[in-house]
Design a protein around this nucleic acid. Structure first.
Length: 113
DNA sequence: GGGCTGACTGACG
DNA sequence: ACGTCAGCCAGCC
């Protein structure tokens, strides 16, 4: 595919990802695969992660977790985990192995506008 | 173009 | 339940 066309699609995909993440309410989480599936291609879960890498400030990036309820972001200096801290501030609980119960905190109402 | 890298996932042992 | 692995696919040498 032509480069320009691919660039346009890429921007579109990113914007759609951000739009969906902005729908997730405080205290709830969604998975990368869930976002990809809502956009029509569950195989693009990794691209969702790639898109989150440079997301705008108004996107609650910390509410996106992996399919196991774990965090795919890295702690900053060894132990402090910003994403976990932000989620706990919102009331999200982590179990002994550092994972979230998606049955309790997962948000399943993502819809494309 | 070829090969490597992930903020991923589901299947297997 | 946990580590590995093979698909996955855009981005970046």
């Amino acid at each position: 595919m032509h480069t320009a066309r691919r660039e346009a699609n890429k921007r579109g995909f990113y914007q759609q990802v951000y739009e969906l993440v902005r729908q997730v309410p405080k205290g709830r989480v969604v998975t990368y695969g869930q976002i990809a599936a809502t956009l029509g291609n569950v195989r693009k879960a990794r691209m969702v992660g790639w898109a989150m890498r440079g997301c705008p400030d108004d996107v609650p990036w910390h509410r996106v977790v992996n399919a196991s309820g774990g965090l795919s972001t890295r702690p900053v200096h060894g132990s402090f985990h910003p994403q976990r801290a932000l989620l706990e501030d919102e009331g999200v609980e982590f179990d002994h192995s550092g994972r979230i119960d998606l049955e309790s905190y997962g948000w399943s109402r993502l819809r494309m506008r």
